[in-house]
Design a protein around this nucleic acid. Structure first.
Length: 496
RNA sequence: GGGCCUAUAGCUCAGCCGGUAGAGCAACGGACUUUUAAUCCGUGGGUCGACAGUUCGAGCCUGUCUGGGCCAACCA
């Protein structure tokens, strides 16, 4: 009696088949198997083979069995390799003999890896095939594949992405889309002479964004450490040090809600350009997005997974945040509009107001309520309130406004860009103000990072900066939810 | 932490008024030398998410817990 007796029928049978192979001296997990060509190479080489013909060429191929049709003395199976390329294998009595044919029928299951050596032929129905002279188990699967013809549930896809990648073509496609976009982003930066750096993920102080951090602990230093919520303050240190064009593509961690557009860990691009400003960095952002679109679809028009097309080409529309609010609510609103007026407007719109909200936060909430859903085509929303943007310099003309834009595509915020605040005295005042909010219970407020301020006091050149969510870029290019653009998302463990 | 929905075979799902469980694919046994989700004949496989409760009797009703989804909130 063993644990194995409690296994579900199909798992137990496969374990018994593995044991049976070993008993007969057949290795179910050989260290290597014959493989002279990939399935893709065979498909490319014999693309135009005439129906019901033979080549005389013998090759060894291998792949995972995804369909199996055992028909007496001639068996068929479909092999699939990692990128989804498939090839039919034919096992016939007169080629492999009775013993190998019987073994094929009884030892090989859907999901197993096999190696097949034989002549490349075209079947009577014109299917390109390898007609086996011999075959060998390459790796025995102990679990049955899910029903190939019914989509797996969302939960099973996310929990067992490895199975999703085996059975679902879109999963394979999206897994390969992401690195294509990453390569494009790095090439665009490289062509613009930006230097890629890697800055700390474990930080003594968290800063650079308004968000709640994950907290950890260092045993060696016996101190609290934070997983970074943004790399901004370190990248600015780089600019102070003379890395005038700098970028980082890496993970951020935010201890906040997860939904179809938020993940606790997510990939972020941040980039800083000395002697640039919010407009030059907007141009860079547009190039990054458009080149990425070109890389995956060969056009600035991308096709979403549901067939909808999105045109990301040309120059993008710009609207003013406060103009959009004024238009949306039917009265003039500026950065100088008193907070009580903003509260009245927000209440009238049915927005639930947090009494802690300052004027700028109210304005942003009103904007999202009246305008956000209409921002489907790429749009730069220009001129955010200065009081919610502690790292951004004030607008050179408009009072109460910062030189900050948000880029909206498909109704969600894809990127943000600033003319960076470089005056260390004002920067200190802003961070002290943030610390006061923090003391009042704002869990997202920034801390006063003295080392960052010291760096700023060594002088930072005038600089434009931007941040863009990589997962969200994938979403804008494909129309997918964030859980489909991240291979392995955080899921709670299954119950025992 | 709230509101609603949901959990049944390896996978995807049915299951009526409360009377001890069904399908397709997959699996097992058999037939078949050109199949393409092969076909045909036969067979097995279930702690109905967990724990309590109501009841003569619970997959179904009630409560608690756990996982998942949607909405709201937070955030990019």
């Amino acid at each position: 009696m063993s644990i194995e007796d409690d296994l579900p029928e199909q798992l137990r049978i496969r374990r018994e088949k593995r044991a049976s192979l070993i008993e007969r001296g057949i290795e179910p997990y050989p260290v290597s198997v014959p493989r002279t060509k990939t399935l893709a190479e065979i498909r490319a080489q014999y693309a135009n083979l005439e129906t019901d013909s033979a080549t005389g060429d013998v090759h060894s191929v291998s792949g995972r069995i995804i369909f199996k049709r055992d028909t007496g003395k001639l068996c068929f199976a479909t092999l699939r390799e990692g990128d989804g390329t498939e090839l039919q294998a034919m096992i016939s009595l007169d080629k492999v003999g009775e013993e190998q044919l019987e073994s094929w029928k009884s030892d090989v299951d859907l999901g197993d890896f096999v190696s097949v050596t034989g002549e490349i032929i075209s079947s009577k129905r014109g299917e390109l095939s390898v007609l086996a002279n011999s075959w060998q188990m390459a790796s025995k699967s102990l679990r049955p594949l899910p029903n190939e013809h019914k989509p797996m549930s969302e939960e099973t896809r996310v929990r067992m992405r490895y199975v999703d990648l085996i059975v679902r073509p879109e999963a394979r496609e999206y897994a390969r889309l992401r690195p294509t976009v990453m390569r494009s982003l790095r090439e665009t930066f490289h062509n613009e002479n930006f230097v890629e750096v890697e800055t700390p993920m474990l930080q003594v102080m968290h800063g650079g964004a308004a968000a709640r951090p994950f907290v950890s602990h260092s045993n060696a230093y016996d101190m609290e450490l934070f997983l970074r919520i943004a790399p901004e303050l370190f990248l600015k240190r780089c600019v102070v040090g003379g890395i005038e064009r700098v970028f980082e593509i890496n993970r951020n961690f935010r201890n906040e809600g997860a939904d179809s557009s938020h993940s606790p860990e997510f990939a972020m691009i941040e980039s800083y350009q000395a002697y640039g400003d919010w407009r030059s960095i907007a141009e860079l952002t547009r190039k990054l997005v458009q080149n990425a679109a070109m890389a995956i679809s060969g056009s600035h028009v991308v096709t979403h997974h549901d067939g909808r097309k999105a045109d990301l080409g040309g120059t993008w529309r710009e609207i003013s945040l406060y103009d959009a609010i004024s238009e949306g609510v039917g009265e003039k609103v500026t950065a100088l509009t008193p907070v009580d007026d903003l509260k009245r407007i927000a209440t009238k719109l049915g927005i639930k107001i947090d009494p802690k909200w300052i004027a700028g936060k109210l304005a942003e909430e009103i904007f999202e309520h009246v305008a956000k859903d209409q921002l489907i085509a790429p749009t730069f929303v220009m001129g955010f309130p200065v009081d919610t943007s502690p790292l951004v310099r004030a607008h050179r003309e408009i009072p109460g406004v910062a030189e900050k834009w948000d880029l909206y595509i498909d109704g969600f915020e894809l990127a943000t860009g600033y003319s960076e605040l470089v005056d260390p005295v004002i920067q200190r005042e802003r961070l002290v103000e943030q610390a006061k909010l923090g003391a009042k219970g704002d869990l997202e407020a920034m801390q006063v990072d003295e080392d960052f301020l010291r760096a700023m006091e060594f002088a930072m050149p005038p600089t434009g900066g931007m941040g863009m969510g990589v997962d969200r870029l994938l979403m804008a290019l494909t129309g997918l939810g964030i859980r489909e653009t991240i291979l392995f998302t955080l899921v709670k463990p299954e119950a025992e």
